[in-house]
Design a protein around this nucleic acid. Structure first.
Lengths: 195, 195
DNA sequence: CGGCATACATATCAACTGTTATGTACCTAC
DNA sequence: GTAGGTACATAACAGTTGATATGTATGCCG
């Protein structure tokens, strides 16, 4: 077994550089040189850890997913509608970090729609997101906080509402300040509650 | 005044080629060469009608907007909630043409978020879209078909819901067939109606 | 110490990008 | 017909892209 030094740690350094590039230049600005420059290194280093551009892109998306998941609060100290609200609010661009994340996601859709592999990955991500939201929706339904309609449809609608808000807020942050985003989510959930 | 031949008609040919490239390759695939090849011509032709890449991109977006507007039915034979429903359904990818359009829009967001001019353009487009929806929402409110809450918030929420559905449907058309998209929109509007 | 991976830097590659200069055929106006 | 602008084709440009081959230093294992 040959020496490993600290391969994983160095790889994480490259990861961090990848993320900085994504956050500042967007997905279209992700190039081997940009990452290398960010590391004060050369393309040789980058290709040493990521053999191809596609591998680098896939890694970048995994990175974005990990960061997204880290942002979502654990659903343990709350349940039902309140937990659902928190889970959706975690996606909204309410912090600089979340804004950065959303910008990366939205900018990735160009490449994701064009490449079959990336497209499938993004599709799966959406499916997993909805699956994670579903139990919260069902709980809220059982609590009488959401109408007893098809939960899958409710989940899809809530995911749509949230991401649609994200896109509008990214393009027009002044028209969608944090307070309004929270208000929109709150009143939307309240409006769905049947009386 | 020098001869004009049919400058505008030829320019429309280039436009059509631009659109074909956008529809098949997405926004990231829009290059002078791709447009020229689509026309069986050279880059000289393209630059003759569009002096720079930026001009070509702006034109491409104007083209998308014109096509989008053409898809939205006139709000004259209906009013209120029904007109609103039709206006929103017109945006959903229910036809190949609309799917094509939405794919172009979503894929444009990468470039739009990175370039200040394009970003402003997209922001204005959203503002105009919401302004066009607002009177329909107000009508529906007056008819008692929507809750008497802040109409601007209602409009933003409906735009969000619709575009969020568009994105999910683009990535997973099998999970979001036409029938389900219509159903989701119908039930969503019905759920918002206060009882 | 010697062998041998690993970890890069360096350099080069062909392909592709937008831009631009130059040529040339054509139409139109005089 | 001829002068001059239009409509391209052709060509070359400098820059950037991802990929790759070759070097070389540095560690660990025997």
């Amino acid at each position: 077994m040959p020496a490993k030094l600290d391969h994983e740690a160095r790889r994480r350094d490259v990861s961090a550089a990848v993320w900085r590039v994504l956050a500042t230049e967007g997905f279209g600005g992700l190039t081997l040189r940009a990452v290398a420059t960010e590391l004060n290194a050369t393309t040789g280093l980058v290709t040493h850890y990521f053999p191809s551009k596609q591998a680098l892109i896939v890694h970048a998306l995994e990175l974005a997913e990990a960061r997204t998941r880290a942002l979502v609060p654990p659903t343990e100290n709350s349940r039902g509608l309140e937990a659902l609200k928190q889970a959706l609010a975690a996606v909204l661009p309410l912090t600089p970090e979340s804004t950065e994340l959303n910008r990366v996601w939205v900018s990735s859709w160009d490449a994701a729609l064009a490449d079959p592999e990336l497209r499938t990955m993004e599709m799966s991500r959406y499916t997993r997101w909805r699956a994670r939201l579903k139990p919260l929706v069902v709980q809220a339904q059982q609590d009488g906080d959401l109408p007893p309609t098809n939960p899958n449809d409710l989940v899809a609608g809530l995911a749509a509402f949230t991401h649609g808000l994200v896109v509008q807020a990214l393009f027009d942050p002044k028209a969608f300040p944090h307070k309004r985003l929270r208000h929109l989510l709150d009143t939307h959930l309240a409006a769905l509650r049947q009386s």
